[in-house]
Design a protein around this nucleic acid. Structure first.
Lengths: 95, 95
DNA sequence: AGCATAGTTCGATGGACGTCGAACTATATC
DNA sequence: GATATAGTTCGACGTCCATCGAACTATGCT
């Protein structure tokens, strides 16, 4: 996590799909990777690609439970390293 | 400015050069576009490309004074539309 | 007018990226 | 073991983008 750079986080989030993903993940809870949950009209291989991009950028972690995978925002680490960033990117825009 | 989308701002700032640019512009004052000011080791055509990218994303404005051009962060508009974003991207990284 | 300077625009190039289908891995169920 | 299901990986394809050099525009200066 120490090696996570801001510019790489921004690259990861500068995509409409992935930006909406973290906005849905902002509550900090693990969410299913099942495509039904997200409502994107993309193939599951593309979905997996976006999950990987977020994880490799240090934005999310993956939890595996048997056949089911969960994705979770690394809220605490991100807030510690980039204070205010997640808040600014997720819904507090018009508040 | 109403049509400025968050994802497009992120695309504009998800580049090492342009991220450093807005970090130098964060004081809100106009800064010379002269390459000496920035200290990047890139050609002036590339510099102009980055200026254009920031401007078209709604992040900066350009002020022309005779032969000299100035670039300025659109601080107030960005703060109004994306509260906390500029703060989060400029300098609070290691604090 | 002639020349220098500040900055942009254009065309080309190489690399990165989003998307997809197909193949693959791994777990669950019968 | 056989089959189904969840999700990833791989290869290909097309598009976008950062970079550069050269040409261009426009202002200032002599």
């Amino acid at each position: 996590m120490e090696s996570v750079e801001l510019v790489d986080v921004l690259k990861a989030l500068a995509d409409p799909i992935r930006l909406r993903m973290i906005q849905q993940l902002v509550d900090g809870d693990p969410h299913s990777k099942s495509s039904q949950f997200w409502g994107f009209e993309i193939q599951k291989s593309t979905l997996a690609h976006h999950f990987k991009t977020l994880r490799e950028a240090g934005v999310t972690r993956t939890i595996v439970e048997g056949r089911n995978h969960w994705i979770q925002l690394r809220r605490a680490e991100l807030d510690a390293k980039f204070p205010g960033l997640i808040d600014a990117l997720t819904g507090h825009t018009t508040a």
